[in-house]
Simulated assay, not measured.
Amino acid sequence: MEHYAGYVRKPFYYETDKMGIIHHSNYIRWFEEARVDLLDFLDYSFDKIEADGIIVPVLGVSAAYKEMVRFGDEVLIRPFINKYTSTRLHFDYVITNQATGKIVTTGTSEHCFMSSETKRLVHLKKQHPELHALFQAYDALDQEMRN
């Protein structure tokens, strides 16, 4: 299994605020874009997860802004699995300015897996072993990369 290199993003002008910097709310959207892109990279798209009857609600999200991002900058958003259990998935994010190499934002998000039909918690290990094995293998790869 190959490690995901990250999601490259050029901010749009409409994402700026009156000070000419990217408005803080957009980083949360960028985290989601990177998660969706990671799933595509792993060849288990969000569409496939939803077709399997699973929804993945966000339980919490945070962002820490270290440097400004402006229109015209290009950033690399790297999502890392911080923790995976059969029912929950926690990500860490690092956003780096491509030109300077500086970390501009870090963040986290927490998710659970639920049945789209019953709205009850899903244990991937029992109910979707293929997806469980994928997250477990990628989590191990992420932990190896971080150490």
Rank of each mutant, 00 (worst) to 15 (best):
I22N: 02
I22C: 03
H23F: 14
H24N: 13
H24G: 03
S25H: 08
N26D: 04
Y27D: 12
R29W: 02
R29S: 13
R29C: 09
R29I: 13
W30H: 11
W30N: 10
F31Y: 15
E33R: 10
E33C: 15
R35E: 15
V36K: 04
V36G: 05
D37R: 08
L38R: 01
L38G: 01
L39P: 02
L39D: 09
L39T: 09
D40Q: 08
L42N: 03
L42V: 04
L42I: 04
S45A: 07
F46R: 03
F46Q: 02
F46D: 01
I49P: 00
E50F: 07
A51C: 06
D52A: 12
G53C: 06
I54H: 08
I55E: 07
P57F: 06
V58R: 10
V58N: 01
L59R: 06
L59S: 01
L59H: 04
G60Y: 07
S62R: 05
S62C: 01
A63N: 00
Y65M: 09
K66D: 00
K66P: 00
E67H: 14
M68H: 05
M68A: 14
V69S: 08
R70Y: 11
F71Y: 15
F71T: 06
G72W: 10
V75R: 01
L76K: 14
L76A: 13
I77C: 09
I77S: 06
I77N: 02
R78Y: 02
F80M: 10
I81T: 12
N82G: 08
N82E: 15
K83L: 13
K83N: 14
S86T: 10
L89K: 02
H90G: 00
H90V: 07
T96D: 12
N97Y: 06
N97R: 07
A99H: 11
T100V: 11
T100Y: 11
T100D: 09
G101D: 01
K102Y: 01
K102W: 01
T106H: 03
G107S: 12
G107P: 02
S109K: 02
S109I: 10
E110D: 14
H111C: 13
C112M: 07
F113V: 08
M114Q: 11
M114V: 15
S115R: 05
S115F: 09
S116C: 04
K119C: 03
K119Y: 14
L121E: 04
L121S: 12
V122G: 01
H123D: 15
H123T: 12
L124M: 07
K126R: 10
Q127F: 05
Q127P: 00
Q127R: 12
E130P: 00
H132E: 08
H132Q: 04
A133K: 08
F135Y: 07
